[in-house]
Design a protein around this nucleic acid. Sequence first.
DNA 1: TTAACATATTATGATATTATAATATATTGT
DNA 2: ACAATATATTATAATATCATAATATGTTAA
Lengths: 117, 117
Amino acid sequence: MNREEFNSVFKSISNFFSLLSNPDRVKILGLLIKQEFDVHDIQEKLNISQSRVSQHLKLLKLNNLVEERREGKHVYYHVKDPNVSKVIESAIQFHMLAITDPQAINSLNELFTLWHI
Amino acid sequence: MNREEFNSVFKSISNFFSLLSNPDRVKILGLLIKQEFDVHDIQEKLNISQSRVSQHLKLLKLNNLVEERREGKHVYYHVKDPNVSKVIESAIQFHMLAITDPQAINSLNELFTLWHI
DNA sequence: TTAACATATTATGATATTATAATATATTGT
DNA sequence: ACAATATATTATAATATCATAATATGTTAA
């Protein structure tokens, strides 16, 4: 692996992390792992604008994290590879190790098992 | 866990991911897991400006990912909790699952074992 | 075809991140 | 105290991300 390849791998890994650098996108991924939802569902559950949901979904789709399925007027989205949850769970676990406040650990633990909202 | 706590946990998780959303910061963390390095070392290995290295280290330090140790003129940095590597490794693994190109998989595999530069 | 609904796109301003250059601070040796 | 070296901070311009509003597209039912 030469310098260029090396850099490009780091770029692609960090780009992946940047997809997870927005709380709403993490929530969306959590939602769409267990089951599929349409845009309106997501909008209501996350309490953000329809436009923002579409923008997030577009970005996630461009980066192959979610797939869509149109059914009439509705477009249903789901996570392409559920293994993405492992990355998020590992981050939650890391957080649990890093913090000492017992109540914060409780919250994270709760999230860890139920982070699909 | 109420709505506010819920949102704040997602915010803190996504904030953690945003620390990893820059290739140089991922490289720096990789470097500083196995051993400590001073700013000049990092600058040379990553081939970026001294100022940028200090800025990255400041951000990582603010977020408790690295610690510093001054020895004379030099300031040595190291990763506070090596478990952070698990998060990065899980992302690399996810990438390996997601892609089909055998050569790309090779590169990632190589990185996976040797990503400490 | 038109109305109604669901979703996507675009435009825009606000804010954040990035990279570079310049300057400041800290430490050591002379 | 001064020069040399290492690191940190600040200023700033370029770029990216974010959030909102407005508009466009696609689909169905009447």
